[in-house]
């Protein structure tokens, strides 16, 4: 045991172990991807895409379902953090890594990394199915790396790890599952629909900078630059994580556990 000490690798390994050793946690993760794959596969085989007529002409149209998976991944991220607080195991965690910052980073890295890898596999699998089924004329014979396909699929796939990361951040911020999930639904999911009623018209444009609005731009794969381009969208999405993550990091460092 000589030489045993806290390391980034150790913290990652610890979070990895935690993720796979609680059934509710990996079941939530599995459910997110089973749901995404199941719904998309049905749509692909059926040849029916979400939305208007034009949607049929978008080669990566099936990724319109990904936000459903993202929702479940937000819950997954939240549970990954709040489960520790509700069970009290957070005290064991913080005694083992008293500087705390590394724990938050490792937790975020593991959840986001796992969701990203599974997300990529999901997209590759569904693209393959799309080619096999041949039900979407616009996508027939279009390689995954064709720009018409690639950017849209990439943007769609990104929302999956983004959801997990947002869940981790919100969970760390409020430390309680119900509160974090309500916060997500209230502010981020429903906020853009409800808030315009309460905001003066001059401020309504602010809602374009909510994270889901930015993700919508990314998911469009360059087909639209309304209200801003993909670069700005990526920045907006990252800035939300940066600000919320920074706040939860600061609270984690300063609050007693």
């Amino acid at each position: 045991m000589t030489g045993a000490r806290i390391s980034a690798r150790g913290l990652l390994a610890s979070e990895w172990t935690k993720l796979w050793s609680v059934r509710s946690l990996w079941l939530t993760l599995a459910a997110a991807f089973a749901l995404t794959i199941g719904l998309c596969a049905y749509m692909i085989v059926d040849g029916e895409m979400l939305g208007s007529e034009e949607a049929q002409d978008i080669p990566f149209g099936w990724t319109a379902i990904y936000p459903v998976g993202m929702l479940v991944l937000v819950v997954f991220g939240v549970l990954g953090v709040t489960g520790e607080y509700s069970s009290g195991s957070i005290r064991t965690t913080m005694v083992a890594a008293p500087r705390r910052t590394g724990v938050l980073l490792a937790k975020a890295a593991v959840a986001t990394g796992v969701a990203a890898v599974l997300g990529v596999c999901t997209s590759v699998l569904l693209h393959g199915l799309l080619q096999l089924a041949g039900t979407v004329p616009a996508a027939r014979g279009v390689s995954l790396f064709d720009p018409d396909m690639f950017w849209g699929v990439l943007g769609g796939t990104l929302v999956l790890p983004y959801g997990a990361l947002l869940g981790i951040v919100l969970g760390s911020l409020v430390r309680n599952a119900a509160a974090a999930i309500c916060l997500y639904f209230g502010v981020f999911q429903m906020g853009p629909q409800i808030l315009p009623a309460f905001l003066p018209d001059s401020l309504a444009g602010v809602l374009d900078y909510m994270p889901l609005a930015a993700l919508d731009v990314l998911r469009a794969g360059g087909l639209t630059s309304e209200p801003y381009g993909a670069g700005t969208a990526a920045f907006v999405a990252a800035a939300w994580i940066g600000v919320l993550g920074g706040a939860s990091w600061w609270l984690l460092r300063s609050r007693d556990v």
């Binding site: 045991m1 030489g3 045993a4 000490r5 806290i6 390391s7 690798r9 150790g10 913290l11 390994a13 610890s14 979070e15 172990t17 935690k18 050793s21 609680v22 059934r23 509710s24 946690l25 489960g83 520790e84 069970s87 009290g88 195991s89 957070i90 005290r91 064991t92 965690t93 005694v95 083992a96 890594a97």
Partner: peptide, 26 residues
């Protein structure tokens, strides 16, 4: 500090394993 600082859904083995791994304890 208190006996209930363990996730109820995790086995004793995995609880210890997760703690050991932070320090690279075999």
């Amino acid at each position: 500090l208190d006996a209930r600082a363990v996730h109820p859904g995790r086995s004793a083995y995995h609880h210890l394993l997760a703690v050991a791994r932070t320090h690279g304890i075999p």
